[in-house]
């Protein structure tokens, strides 16, 4: 079934992509199934070994020399791809994770290191948690949280399959968890806030998003994301880093949150180098002007990278947050 953009969604995307050709390219690619990317689980096998094994059966590429764990399997497009890739022996043994390339970007931006204390606030299904655990070589600790038990169960299954042993998974609403952790003086080196969103970036893999899209959801998500950010940031160590990411294009859920962060907390945006083409964040949207620094955010468009759409920003906490300082007295 072919879905079309709702008129308001199209109007908003045209405002974000004012060049007609650019918009047409966007409109074309969002109706095509995405490429099949996998990420080698280096906790179980080296990228070199996996590449060699899979290369005997499939046409596999390692598109980024600095990230050999990221592989693109050319043979599989379309609806059968997840089934074939998910049913392969190497997948069942936990040697790789089927993960869309743009969704790998938040963790590449955060760069968790061995021994660090990391919070993954909205963790399920675990693609980014397992990616971080591999980068941390199963050391340090990741507190991986999600709100619902069925989602935590999916997270647990993926952690087991990937042989992840440095994670403590919790089930809580993110705001409440952060509030309790802040009071108990938990402070993390790094936080990943890959926030629940309206999913505009996932049109290629989930075409039903065309039908489900609703501006009220966008506005509601924006409010929820601000609450999540405001609470998560208070659990960060001074000098620590937080990555805020979504799989949506709407500025209410992206730059508006970055603007909110810059205006309310002692944070600065860190420059990030990602292996995908990034466009700068938009500095105004629907009569609202944002802090100029939101430009340092990274907008990932599907037509630029033959990927899904994504948004990533990385902040560093410069000093203790005031109300936290008062609580500490």
């Amino acid at each position: 079934m072919v879905y079309e953009m709702k008129p308001l969604f199209e109007e908003r995307m045209r405002a974000l992509l004012p060049n007609e050709l650019d918009f047409e390219e966007f409109n074309k690619i969002v109706h095509e199934r995405p490429r099949s990317f996998i990420r080698c689980n280096t906790l179980k096998i080296s990228a070199e070994e996996l590449f060699e094994r899979l290369g005997k059966r499939w046409k596999v590429h390692q598109p980024f020399s600095e990230y050999p764990e990221i592989m693109w399997v050319e043979d599989f497009y379309g609806e059968d791809a997840p089934g074939v890739l998910g049913n392969a022996i190497e997948h069942l043994l936990g040697y790789y994770y089927v993960q869309e390339i743009s969704s790998m970007m938040s963790v590449l931006a955060l760069r968790p290191e061995p021994g660090e204390f990391v919070l993954d606030l909205c963790a399920s299904p675990g693609s980014k948690t397992t990616q971080m655990a591999a980068m941390m070589k199963n050391t340090g600790t990741i507190i991986a949280n999600d709100i619902k038990l069925d989602r935590v169960k999916i997270l647990a299954a993926n952690l087991e399959r990937c042989g992840v042993s440095n994670v403590i998974a919790t089930r809580s609403d993110g705001v409440g968890l952060c509030e309790r952790m802040r009071k108990a003086r938990y402070r993390f080196d790094k936080i990943l806030l890959d926030a629940p969103c309206s999913g505009e970036g996932t049109l290629r893999s989930s075409p039903k998003t065309f039908k489900m899209w609703n501006v009220k959801v966008v506005e509601k998500m924006g409010r929820e994301q601000k609450k999540l950010f405001a609470n998560a940031i208070k659990c960060l160590k001074v000098g620590g880093e937080i990555v805020y990411s979504t799989c949506t294009h709407s500025p209410e859920e992206d730059e508006a949150i970055v603007d909110f962060a810059l205006k309310n907390f002692p944070v600065e945006i860190e420059k990030i180098n990602l292996p995908l083409k990034c466009r700068p964040g938009v500095t105004s949207w629907r009569n609202k002007e944002f802090d100029k620094n939101v430009e340092k955010s990274c907008r990932i468009y599907p037509q630029d990278n033959d990927s899904e759409g994504f948004f990533v920003t990385k902040f560093r906490l410069k000093e203790e947050i005031k109300d936290v300082q008062e609580e500490m007295k």
């Binding site: 021994g115 204390f117 199963n138 050391t139 340090g140 600790t141 990741i142 507190i143 949280n145 038990l149 935590v152 997270l155 647990a156 952690l159 042993s165 440095n166 994670v167 403590i168 998974a169 919790t170 089930r171 809580s172 968890l177 309790r180 952790m181 009071k183 108990a184 938990y186």
Partner: peptide, 21 residues
Amino acid sequence: YSGHLTREEIMELGEIANVEI
């Protein structure tokens, strides 16, 4: 568990968070 928290720290975490795994 291969992480850096001690058993005491894990128990403390269990008092403020709903630890599932």
